[in-house]
Design a protein around this nucleic acid. Structure first.
Lengths: 139, 139
DNA sequence: TTTTATATTTGCAATGATTTCAGAAATGAA
DNA sequence: TTCATTTCTGAAATCATTGCAAATATAAAA
């Protein structure tokens, strides 16, 4: 759990004015490490905030991603997820329950790849898919 | 370049009846390693085949992916690409020109990740994004 | 405090890739 | 050929995301 005042500072340092909506969305993404979609964030916050627009959630999350405060995950074809943890790690998505799990990696992503001379790499994502331990036990 | 008769056999072995449309789509994806979208395949083949439906291209590519003959790439948020090469390799997508490039990997993907006990992994994708050497030179 | 300018939010409409669906065409078996 | 099954077609539907213009909130200036 991170203090609101700390989160506020992070936004300001990134050049983002901490409006009520932005701070609430930022707090949600940094506190809940469940890799939520914009829609999930919207549903979770519309009560807390008097009014909230889904458009605002989309715009704000995009703002955070562009500022490097939040990671965008495209592990699912049909919708985008967001990850408040911007450190380098892999993701697993369970085909059965849909849950997304963080995984530690042994080396930097780029150390795994050959032939990168001349490329400027800005982003790297390792996505694994299959069946998670919990779903596997159920079968 | 692979012979049509060979491609036909591959489809039959996978339990897929090699209709005119399916064979043409399969040949396109196995010959052109440009990671095309369904729409690109459709545009490329609609002349060759007298008539072709975009729906057929979507359905057929999905059929190939489910049969393990073709890889589905979700490296771009807004559309899906297909890769006739099903061997394990990474992909780079240039933010400037949009081109997708194949990259060799040093180890198996799973050797890079910790804490996979109990997980059943069916698929692994490493996506890199940034600026490709050609676009870098242009700037 | 009031005025003014600017930044942010809102909600609805539009977009566009993908899927659904029902009928038409092709194929294989009898 | 006839019948049954599979495949293809094209138009309509879906749904996550974005565009846009009006409404609201915030900060600066007076």
């Amino acid at each position: 759990m991170i203090a609101r005042s700390e989160l506020k500072k992070e936004l300001i340092n990134a050049g983002i004015r901490p409006s009520v909506q932005r701070l609430a969305i930022y707090e949600y993404v940094k506190t809940n490490r469940t890799h939520p979609t914009a829609d999930v964030v919207y549903d979770a916050l519309r009560d807390e905030l008097g009014s909230l627009s889904l458009t605002t959630v989309y715009n704000t999350l995009k703002l955070f991603v562009d500022a490097g405060l939040v990671q965008l995950l495209s592990i699912d074809d049909t919708f985008r997820c967001f990850d408040g943890d911007t450190t380098s790690h892999a993701h697993f998505r369970c085909d059965s329950c849909g849950k997304i799990v963080d995984l530690k990696i042994k080396n930097d992503f780029l150390a795994m790849v050959d032939g990168l001379d001349g490329f400027e790499i800005k982003e790297a994502q390792l996505y694994l898919k299959g069946i998670c331990p919990i779903c596997k036990r159920k079968n």
